[in-house]
Design a protein around this nucleic acid. Sequence first.
DNA 1: CTCATTGCAAATGGTTTGCATTGGG
DNA 2: CCCAATGCAAACCATTTGCAATGAG
Lengths: 144, 144
Amino acid sequence: MKPESMQADLIAALQDQGLRITKARKALVLEIESRSGTFTAEEISESLPEVGRATVFRTLKVLVDGGTICRVNTPLGAPIYTRARVEHHHHTYCVNCADVQEIRLSNVELMLEPLGREVKGQIVGHSVDLFIICDRCVDAVSQA
Amino acid sequence: MKPESMQADLIAALQDQGLRITKARKALVLEIESRSGTFTAEEISESLPEVGRATVFRTLKVLVDGGTICRVNTPLGAPIYTRARVEHHHHTYCVNCADVQEIRLSNVELMLEPLGREVKGQIVGHSVDLFIICDRCVDAVSQA
DNA sequence: CTCATTGCAAATGGTTTGCATTGGG
DNA sequence: CCCAATGCAAACCATTTGCAATGAG
């Protein structure tokens, strides 16, 4: 598993969308790959001063449209992005420290199915996000 | 069920939070009551030119904090507000016309319970939103 | 070569803040 | 009376857009 193979899919995704592989896009993909967890447009932009702000947003949008990364709207502040490692997943959002974790809830899809019957119209997707107080914060709070 | 009684709870909610009943807040509550479905801060502000923009936002926030209205973040554009008629509920969001409907999914709470075991940290809330193509839009699309 | 893509800077949309003024209790 | 709440305008933040310059294919 060479470092190149890690980003191959992201680059491939761009090509699949008929997009050019430019210096800026390569830098962005590399930057995203280098991050383990979640990130914001702002953070990426800060790390890549040589890439214009607008291009960061434009490229993030393209990646989201291509399904390779995933945007999570947070109640306050800017949306958070995560690599879409799994086909479909959900998130936990710590209401205290705003940390977002990507999780795979094993049977959400299954359970959602019966709900469809209660809904008028065609379900095309869903968002199941859990607001939590993460372990770190629970500890911090209980000590205060 | 006099019109006054309709807004009593909203006014009461303000008082419960130790807030003053001012002209601006009365106007806002009345305006919210007059709307059947969902609304945006912008719409309220337009309908009440005598109330300052900032006050609209300040008051909406207060009402959200008080739990009497509910803010739904939409993927694009400004958040949408709905009266929180039921203790807890969810939303359908039409990806085509952006219409938001408040729905009560009978067994969401039940089904979320087992999911808690998969999650580290304390669950304090959740957001289950369904992205749909509403009846109106399904019709429109199929005719095109 | 040519057109997609870029960087920049200015514009935008939604919301917040500072501050002097007003008015509810 | 006093301080919470207001209106206004300016500030703010994240994001988008217009446009001329660049560079990938």
